[in-house]
């Protein structure tokens, strides 16, 4: 193994290190103790993680429900807003864009939908009475009509 005259011929290849007395008798017991302790701590960690998992799942489901509800409400409200035109908007629209409609098409539309304005007999009398009360010139009114 060693060359002749080498330092290795003069030294025995036995290690000079020592261990405390009965070290190898106690090592297996200590190792099993360490294993038991580390398994216990890893089990506790696992249990903690499992608990956390449930908490996160619960929180996530609540957040999910809140989010879905919010989106649903938002969707319904925006639909309603789209469908309804406020009176002000309608008035503003008609004021500014009344020139876009010609009289004939409006009348035609009313006729089609049977919504021609008509006054009942008693309503006509009320109107005439009102006009007289207000002192409106009858002749002017006839001419206008």
């Amino acid at each position: 193994m060693a060359n002749k005259g080498s330092i290795f011929d003069k030294i025995e290849n036995k290690s000079a290190y020592k261990v405390p007395e009965r070290y190898f008798d106690s090592l297996p017991v200590r190792v099993m103790g360490s294993i038991a302790a580390s398994e216990k701590s890893s089990q506790t960690k696992k249990q903690k993680l499992l608990k956390l998992k449930y908490v996160f799942a619960y929180a996530a489901s609540i957040i999910g429900i809140i989010f879905i509800s919010y989106m649903g409400i938002n969707y319904l409200t925006s639909n309603r807003n789209n469908q309804l035109i406020s009176e002000n908007d309608a008035l503003e629209y008609l004021t500014f864009y009344s020139s876009d409609f010609d009289e004939a098409s409006i009348i035609e539309n009313f006729q089609e939908t049977n919504k021609i304005l008509s006054f009942k007999e008693d309503e006509s009398e009320i109107i005439i009475y009102y006009l007289l009360e207000e002192g409106i010139d009858e002749l002017l009114l006839y001419n206008e009509l």
Binding site: K10, A16, Y17, P20
Partner: peptide
């Protein structure tokens, strides 16, 4: 305390 070598073993180490 857990090294029990003579001079030459110590030197080898």
């Amino acid at each position: 305390e857990y090294f029990d070598g003579d001079k030459i073993k110590l030197k080898l180490q």
